[in-house]
């Protein structure tokens, strides 16, 4: 932590950046923080409660950050994948942001929890996460725990659903999706959902009915899954912020599995690696096509 704070202080006092985006201790737990003065750097923390993917603050659609000019951002290996995605999709110029990588051995799911990081509490995406540090960072600080091996609970659930008949899956998802109140928090928090005008808000034509009913909800979640296919970095933010507790991570995980099995693709923190949707191979599998 001292290493992180010292680096942040130096970047701010030397004027390299005007703000550092990281985490601080809030009244209820860890929370995102903007530090704009060298002294403020002492409030920065990093531990297993720093679950938020701060990359979504870098989106050009967030003008308050833009006004600050050059900023530094503290990022976990998984956040690095999101930043790489934003660079890949020309949303942020690499030279406009200083990236401070923190070594990470896993986080828990709830930033407000006082639970320690254990096999039982670790976030599902951290199970089997191979990266202890991100490769994109300009500076890398801290030390990391050993990380957690699988098995992913979501993968188990996906297998269980796959084994059930289609009607069971339909029933399961209907019971989940009917809870959706279409607050679009899952979209707002997602680092890769940065469209100026989301398809869900379009009225001419209206592909996705906007009121919270089963039909519109279905269309919304299909659209979101398709738009994020091969782009989702599995930061888990959408599921975390959903006020209705809909297991969105099952959908994102399922699609990630499909993309990895079919196209041998895993979200990368290298902006030069192309996303699997928008590219193709002539010999892509096509067993489902007559």
């Amino acid at each position: 932590m001292t290493e992180l704070r010292e680096l942040a202080r130096r970047l701010l006092s030397e004027g390299t950046v005007n703000a550092v985006l990281g985490w601080e201790e809030g009244p209820r737990g860890a929370r995102p923080a903007f530090v704009t003065t060298p002294e403020g750097a002492d409030t920065l923390i990093f531990d297993h409660r720093c679950v938020h993917n701060l990359a979504s603050y870098l989106s050009p659609r967030r003008p308050h950050l833009k006004r600050l000019g050059k900023v530094a951002m503290v990022l976990k290996p998984c956040d690095a994948r999101a930043v790489a995605g934003l660079i890949r999709e020309t949303q942020i110029p690499r030279d406009k942001v200083v990236l401070i990588g923190v070594r990470c051995g896993g986080v828990i799911t709830d930033p407000d929890s006082t639970a320690p990081l254990t096999e039982a509490t670790v976030a599902d995406r951290c199970r089997g996460c191979p990266d202890r540090e991100g490769h994109l960072a300009d500076h890398t600080v801290g030390t990391a725990g050993p990380g957690f091996a699988g098995p992913s609970k979501r993968a188990q659930k996906i297998e269980e659903l796959a084994a059930a008949p289609a009607e069971k899956r339909w029933a399961f998802w209907q019971s989940e999706l009917e809870k959706c109140v279409r607050c679009h928090a899952c979209r707002q928090v997602c680092p890769m959902c940065y469209c100026d005008r989301c398809l869900a808000d379009k009225t001419q034509p209206r592909w996705i009915e906007s009121s919270p009913h089963a039909r519109g909800n279905m269309a919304w979640h299909v659209a979101r899954a398709m738009h994020l296919a091969g782009r989702c970095v599995d930061c888990g933010e959408c599921e975390r912020v959903c006020p209705e507790g809909i297991p969105l991570g099952l959908i994102t995980r399922k699609i990630a599995q499909v993309v990895s099995e079919r196209y041998d693709f895993r979200p990368s923190d290298d902006p030069a690696v192309p996303a699997p949707v928008g590219t193709y191979r002539m010999d892509d599998p096509q067993e489902f096509i007559l």
Partner: peptide, 13 residues
Amino acid sequence: EANCAGCFHCERV
């Protein structure tokens, strides 16, 4: 032009 986010998925395909 008002809505384009400049992600250039279109360019890629």
